[in-house]
Write a protein that binds this DNA or RNA. Structure first.
Length: 439
RNA sequence: CGGGGCGUAGCUCAGCCUGGUAGAGCUUUCGGUUUGGGACCGAAAGGUCGCGUGUUCGAAUCACGCCGCCCCGACCA
């Protein structure tokens, strides 16, 4: 993509409404545009990152055996009356009325709807286990939206729902999601620590929040240092096998948010093992048994021929929130530092002197070679000063910068800069693609 | 929902206290000089001063009402 033909509305000054760094950088780098309190448009660069993050979530859900569907944003109030939540949910639920004065709502979550789908089709335990997920916009009318996309009212969320014939099956479903989440966040370059969370009305130990450590996190968290270096399950992990050793390993060391913090247990750890940090919740998984299946009549016939309500769990990932979380975890004074896996473009190619024949030729050739190597390239071919181009590139945080100027071209060279480390290397023009692709 | 604050050009803000017909920097456009880390000179464009009502000869400025947004708290993926 040539920057001269692209839509990248970057801001030189920080809009005053943005307090935290990810919000400031998302506005400055032209990722989002606020349309109303807690409601954002996604500009081209932001849309690309949002898609990349969603795609990683999707791939790991699929790998774990979950199946993608898409449920609507607008739901009927009647569905929510069945579970009893229509009256319980309160003002966070955006209630609307259609032209026939039917009561509708903009879904804040989809347990009722997915349970309705399940009960319409599934009759036998032999069709289980089943895990249906979707990636869809939700709306929660937060009293006080803030921090940009980290705490918006409208947000993109992946929510998965598991159905099993009994508790044991549900536990296995839970473990599959647990492992899928470890892989999902790791692929985004994040260190996410699973922490015991409030398990609601069911109780038990099957509720975890996945928390990213970042100095600007919303809440204080405590964990054992061991968790920072735990191995991530590999891509070829067998999701049909027994995952409990992995889950046990991850849930044995101490880890808690401030709500569940047990100071005595934490202080029992050796001093050097104690990590106190700020955290951002990016995922939440929990088992809730028959809370919805019971009142909504989602039953299957078991091996013994009797009907029973299915055991369910739900598993959320804040997809749009993750953009903010990634930036909180990865930025510097100059701007965003995207991990390769989610970056809107892999490479920013800077032509320092558009209009200069030799420089144009060299930069155009590199643009083509990089694209042919399968890389997304943002080619800064604008007639701007070098400083402005460097500043723009650092701000938007593409992982690699390839800098082509007249002096270098005269010597048959270009410069390659790694955004993350700031490391620069001058290379022959022919070696640039190899350096960037690592091949 | 309680407390506080803000709304003036695309952005950041001054002007308001003490009423007299709207400013700066950045951005944008044009011309010129520049050209490896957000250059410089010159010119130009750009504003229902959030909306409404009132006070006044006269309101960005004073009063009241409304709307929007931000911050702190309580609440939450």
């Amino acid at each position: 993509m040539r920057l001269s033909r692209y839509f990248l509305p970057i801001l030189r000054e920080t809009p005053k409404e943005a307090e935290i760094v990810s919000h400031r950088l998302m506005l400055r780098a032209g990722l989002i545009r606020q349309q109303s309190a807690g409601i954002y448009s996604w500009l081209p660069l932001g849309k690309r990152v949002l898609d990349n993050i969603g795609q990683i979530v999707r791939e790991e859900q699929n790998r774990s055996g979950a199946i993608e569907i898409l449920m609507p944003t607008i739901q009927s109030a009647d569905l929510w009356r069945e579970s009893g939540r229509y009256d319980d949910y309160g003002k966070e639920m955006l209630r609307i009325e259609d032209r026939h004065e039917r009561e509708m709502l903009y879904g804040p979550t989809n347990e009722e709807m997915v349970t309705e789908i399940f009960r319409s089709y599934v009759r036998s335990y032999r069709e289980l286990p089943l895990n249906l997920y979707h990636i869809q916009w939700k709306f929660r009318d937060e009293v006080r939206p803030r921090f940009g996309v980290m705490r918006g009212r409208e947000f993109l969320m992946k929510d998965a729902y598991s159905f099993d014939v009994d508790y044991e099956g549900a536990r296995k479903a839970y473990e599959r999601m647990f492992v899928a989440y470890l892989r999902t966040f790791d692929r985004m370059g994040l260190k996410a620590i699973p922490m015991r969370a409030d398990s609601g009305p069911i109780g038990g130990d099957m509720s975890h929040e996945f928390i990213i450590l970042a100095s600007t996190g919303e809440s204080e968290v405590f964990c054992s240092r061991k968790l920072l270096d735990m191995p991530i399950p590999p891509a070829d992990i067998d999701f049909r096998g027994d995952l409990s050793p992995i889950v046990d390993a991850w849930t044995t060391p101490y880890a808690a948010t401030d709500e569940k913090h047990d100071a005595a247990a934490f202080n029992a750890l050796p001093e050097e093992d104690r990590v106190t940090a700020r955290g951002i919740e990016v995922g939440h998984i929990f088992y809730f048994g028959t809370k919805y299946s019971e009142p909504m009549g989602a039953k299957v016939t078991g091996p013994d021929g009797t009907d029973r309500p299915v055991h369910m769990g739900s598993y959320g990932v804040g997809v749009s929130r993750l953009l903010g979380a990634v930036i909180e975890a990865s930025h510097d004074e100059a701007g965003i530092i995207w991990p390769d896996s989610v970056a809107p473009f892999a490479v920013g190619l800077i032509n320092l002197k558009p209009g200069d024949k030799a420089t144009d030729a060299a930069a155009d050739a590199l643009y083509e070679q990089l694209a042919n190597a399968g890389l997304d390239v943002l080619y800064d071919d604008r007639d701007e000063r070098a400083g402005a181009k460097f500043a723009t590139m650092d701000l938007i945080g593409l992982p690699w910068q390839v800098i082509v100027g007249p002096k270098g071209v005269a010597a048959g060279e270009a410069e390659v800069k790694r955004r993350q480390s700031g490391e620069r290397q001058t290379l022959p023009l022919g070696a640039v693609v190899k350096r960037v692709t690592g091949k």
